[in-house]
Amino acid sequence: MNLGNLSDLYRQLILDHAQHPHHHGDLAAADQTVTLNNPTCGDVIKLQVELKDDRVADIAFSGDGCSISQASASMMTDLVKGQSLTDVQHEIATFLEMLMGNSGEDEDVDALGDAAVLATVIKFPARIKCATLAWKALEQAIGEAKNNE
């Protein structure tokens, strides 16, 4: 069995997040709810955010997906909770660029926290959309919130 690449994709950190996702569930006081699906595979994510003073006061996700999509959502929610929307938007851009193979500035990637390990997913092109689903949902939630202002 060719485990070399596989251990790269399924690092312990990713498996831990997938098996015990953080911020998994529903928010009682959500300002924005975005449901996105991945039409190629049927994975679904429901992402809820509570916004206060241009910050992500609280965030939660639920839905159904593979370990990569669940881990990515868990890592993202850890990262953005409490942050300003400006910082979050910058991080989303960094993450999406990273998964298009554009590594960006080291300090930007480091700022992604646990989610930086998901850079390994680019070796598995079929799984990139799994990793980006939650981030696209958050991008949309913030966009909708700003439009409603």
Binding site: M1, L6, C41, C66, S67, I68, A126, R127, C130
Partner: peptide, 26 residues
Amino acid sequence: GVHPHDVATVLDTQGVAVRAGHHCAQ
């Protein structure tokens, strides 16, 4: 306990090509 995508990725590393997903039959 293992999502079909993860199954298909692990099988692929062993040369086994299978399909995972909703198979266009939602």
